[in-house]
Simulated assay, not measured.
Amino acid sequence: MTDRYAAFDRLKFDRPAPRVLRLTLSNPGKANAVTPTMHRQLEEVWAAIDADPETRVTIVTGEGRAFCAGGALDDMPVAGALDPNQQFSQDFNNATRLVRNIIASRKPIVSAINGAAVGAGLALALLADVPIAAKTAKLLDGHVRIGVAAGDHAAIVWPLLCGMAKAKYYLLTNRPMTGEEAERNNLVALAVDAEALEATSIEVALELAAAAPTAVRMTKYVLNHWLRQNEAIFDLSAAFEMVNFSGAEAKEALKAMEEKRPPDFTTDVLF
């Protein structure tokens, strides 16, 4: 690759086909969990791709057996580390920039969901213009499981894709679904056998790259207005998520995960 992407050292890039850039999430040994540095690079990379004359389509995938396990648990906000206003502003701005920058990107994105996609990783997967999943991939929002509201992309995307009833069912229960189930629920465009995922993602990317680029980008822009016009919903979900991170439920959920036991949510806080 050229120096164009040298600053994005926590991501990997290659060109599997003419005018197609493949961005691979890479955090070996941690299921490609998103560290703060990787998160910042994922916020900024879309503008660099839009400015790249050699790229018309981007494929996003994960290294190894996982797509992305979401935010790295050992990098979750620590209560008291910063002033509460600073912590909220930092985390809220980071989360909203990632989602907004993907929505604002001009060039089409294909996601090749090769394995587990959770939290922020699922946001990357489902905000792609053409999400393609391996039938055996595992999709899980994951927010309620760690004691926080379903922020990131979920409140803005899921009701539009799969309807309110399914969105509430999966986001509130935090039940996972396979790639095959995600296709049936309209969360992804296609579900294919795992061994066909790479070839299928390249095939779709090449089809998009061969189409009239201005028409494709304008069509994407118009369709993404469905998301932009609901940004107030997204802002509220992200704000609730950040507030929850400083609460007792998130602390208990994360402690329970570390200790490999069920969380104890016996204290009920009225909302």
Rank of each mutant, 00 (worst) to 15 (best):
M1Y: 08
M1P: 13
M1H: 09
M1C: 05
T2M: 08
K12W: 14
A17G: 05
P18N: 06
L25E: 09
A31T: 04
N32L: 02
A33S: 12
L42C: 09
V45K: 00
P53R: 01
T55N: 03
A66W: 02
C68M: 07
C68I: 06
G70M: 08
G71T: 15
G71E: 07
G71K: 01
A72K: 03
A72H: 12
P77C: 09
P77G: 08
A79N: 07
A81I: 01
P84M: 09
Q86D: 13
S89W: 12
Q90R: 14
D91P: 05
A95Y: 07
T96A: 01
R97C: 13
R97T: 15
V99W: 01
R100N: 15
V110D: 08
A112G: 14
A117N: 07
G121I: 15
A123I: 15
A125Y: 06
L126Y: 09
A128F: 11
D129W: 03
L140Q: 04
L140N: 09
H143G: 08
H143T: 06
I146Q: 00
G147N: 05
I156N: 12
L161H: 06
G163A: 12
M164T: 15
M164F: 11
K168F: 15
Y169G: 11
L171K: 03
T173H: 07
T178S: 14
G179L: 06
E183L: 10
E183P: 11
R184A: 15
N185R: 12
L190R: 12
A191R: 01
A194Q: 09
E195A: 06
E195C: 02
L197A: 02
S201T: 13
I202H: 00
E203C: 10
A205H: 08
A209I: 15
A212Q: 11
A212S: 10
P213E: 07
T214K: 08
A215R: 06
K220D: 03
V222E: 03
N224T: 07
W226F: 05
R228N: 03
E231F: 11
A232I: 12
L236G: 03
L236V: 13
F240W: 06
M242S: 03
V243L: 13
N244V: 05
N244H: 13
S246Q: 14
G247K: 03
A248Y: 04
A250L: 00
E252D: 02
